[in-house]
Amino acid sequence: KLNEKEKELCQMVRLVPGAYLEYKSALLNECNKQGGLRLAQARALIKIDVNKTRKIYDFLIREGYI
């Protein structure tokens, strides 16, 4: 299910792929509902370490998901 970049992200932030996909889905759904997504909203949405949230958020922006 994951592409190579997503696999690298999961290894870097030490997330299991299932958890990453869950977080990605939640962030994309919220982004679609709101018409955009700020980091503060992402942090409130997924209750994990803020540094991990930041890396996931930055990755999703860089890859054009949000």
Rank of each mutant, 00 (worst) to 15 (best):
G36Y: 09
I46E: 07
K33L: 11
G36A: 08
Y23C: 10
I56N: 02
K33Q: 11
E8N: 10
A26V: 14
N51Q: 08
L45I: 13
L60A: 02
E22T: 10
C31S: 13
K1C: 05
A44W: 02
N29D: 12
A42T: 05
G35Q: 09
L27P: 00
I61A: 10
Y65V: 15
L2C: 00
R14Q: 14
A26R: 13
K33M: 06
A19C: 09
K33P: 03
L37Y: 06
V16I: 11
N51S: 13
L27H: 01
K5Y: 02
L15P: 03
C10A: 03
G35W: 00
E6I: 08
R62D: 14
G64N: 08
I56D: 01
L45M: 09
I48A: 13
R43Y: 13
G36H: 09
Q41I: 03
A26W: 05
K55Q: 13
G35F: 03
E22H: 08
V16K: 15
G35E: 09
I66E: 06
L45G: 08
I56T: 04
L37G: 07
E4D: 12
E6P: 00
D58R: 05
K33C: 06
I61V: 14
K1G: 11
R43H: 14
S25Q: 15
A26K: 14
Q41T: 09
T53C: 11
E8D: 10
A44E: 14
Y57F: 11
I48S: 10
E22W: 09
R43M: 15
E30C: 10
I56K: 00
E63F: 04
L21M: 08
Q41M: 06
D49Y: 08
Q34S: 11
Y65K: 10
L45E: 05
E63Y: 05
R38C: 15
E22K: 12
G18H: 11
R14K: 11
G64E: 08
K33E: 07
R62T: 11
L60T: 03
C31Q: 07
E8T: 08
N32Y: 09
Q34M: 12
S25T: 14
E6L: 04
V13H: 09
E30P: 05
L60N: 03
N51R: 13
S25F: 09
K1E: 14
I48P: 05
A19S: 09
Y23W: 07
K55F: 07
G35H: 04
M12G: 07
K24D: 01
T53A: 13
I61S: 09
L28T: 11
L21Y: 04
I46M: 13
L45C: 10
L15V: 09
G35C: 06
G36Q: 08
A19P: 02
I61C: 13
M12A: 13
M12P: 01
R62A: 13
Q34V: 07
F59E: 00
D49S: 12
Y20S: 02
T53Q: 09
K24E: 00
Q34F: 11
E6Y: 06
D49G: 11
K5A: 12
E22N: 11
M12L: 14
E4F: 11
K1R: 10
E63G: 06
R43N: 14
I48T: 12
R14H: 15
K47I: 07
R43D: 10
N32W: 11
L28D: 02
Q41S: 08
I61T: 11
Q11F: 00
G36D: 07
S25D: 13
Q11C: 04
T53I: 11
Q34G: 10
M12N: 14
Q41K: 10
K5W: 02
E30T: 09
K5S: 08
I66R: 03
Y23I: 15
R38E: 14
E63P: 04
L2G: 00
S25L: 09
C31D: 06
C10G: 01
I46N: 06
N3P: 03
K47M: 05
K33W: 04
Y65Q: 12
I46S: 13
S25I: 09
E22Y: 05
A40W: 10
L45F: 05
A40I: 11
M12K: 14
I48V: 11
E63Q: 04
A19W: 01
I66F: 05
A44H: 13
L21Q: 09
C10Y: 01
Y65T: 12
Q11L: 07
R43I: 15
Q34N: 13
K1Q: 12
I66C: 05
I61N: 09
I61W: 09
Y57S: 03
